[in-house]
Simulated assay, not measured.
Amino acid sequence: MTIENRKANYDYFIEDKIECGISLKGNEVKSIHNGMCNIKDSWCQIQNGNLVVRGMHITPWHTSNSYDIDVDREVQLLAHKKEIIKLENKLKTDGYTLIPLKIYFNDKGKCKMLIGICKGKHTYDKRNALKEKQIKRDIERSFK
């Protein structure tokens, strides 16, 4: 099961992508495996040398204890120190943010998150992207 942030491609220019592991607790893995997770309004931050995701909502597993886990807690990402330093240097320039793009399970069954170093789009950029998408769609229809 993959959980994608489609809004990120619409709102941001994605310049670089990095794969990180996720530090999950208890039944969060089962919830993510069943697609009960939302990363649409989430973002990443660097706190005390650690990479953290904020705004990610993981719905509790139906048989889990109600006192177990906070639904909107900060989730720590697992990345190498060199990668975190590189991200921190990139974020110091204006307009760059870290946005979660995708959550998926790799071949070994480990939960991974794909993070993008993104720069925000203006409204005219968004209109141009929609126009190009519509033109491609029309061309594909004409060939069928």
Score class of each variant (00 low, 15 high):
K40C: 09
T59E: 12
G120S: 12
D107K: 12
E132Y: 01
W61G: 11
D125L: 06
V53L: 13
C20Q: 03
R127E: 08
M36N: 10
G95K: 04
P60M: 06
D70L: 09
G116M: 05
F105I: 14
K126Y: 00
L114S: 07
K81R: 15
V53H: 00
S23G: 05
K7N: 14
N48E: 08
K131E: 13
I99K: 05
I115T: 14
M56Y: 03
N50P: 03
G120V: 04
F143P: 08
K92D: 15
D70N: 14
D11S: 11
E15A: 07
H33R: 10
Q45L: 14
N65G: 00
R141V: 10
R54W: 00
Y12I: 05
C20D: 06
D138H: 03
L91H: 05
C20A: 08
I3D: 04
D94E: 04
R54D: 02
E28R: 01
L98W: 01
K90L: 14
L130M: 13
A79F: 02
Y10L: 13
G109P: 09
S66Q: 07
K136Q: 11
E88R: 12
T123L: 07
H122I: 13
G95P: 03
K30P: 04
Y12N: 09
N38F: 08
R54C: 10
E132K: 15
K110E: 15
N128A: 15
N65A: 11
G35L: 07
C118Q: 00
L24F: 11
G95Q: 07
P60R: 10
I46N: 13
D107H: 04
D68A: 10
I18L: 08
T93V: 08
I103N: 08
L101C: 11
I46P: 09
D11R: 02
F143I: 03
I139E: 14
S42H: 01
K40I: 13
Y104Q: 05
E4M: 06
N27W: 12
L78A: 02
T97V: 05
D16N: 11
E4H: 07
I135M: 11
L77G: 05
A79V: 00
I115M: 15
K144T: 13
Y67H: 13
K102P: 10
P60N: 05
L77D: 07
G26M: 10
V71D: 02
K92F: 09
I103V: 07
C44L: 06
I99W: 01
I32L: 09
I117D: 02
K108G: 10
T123F: 12
D138Q: 06
E140M: 12
K82I: 14
P100D: 04
I3L: 09
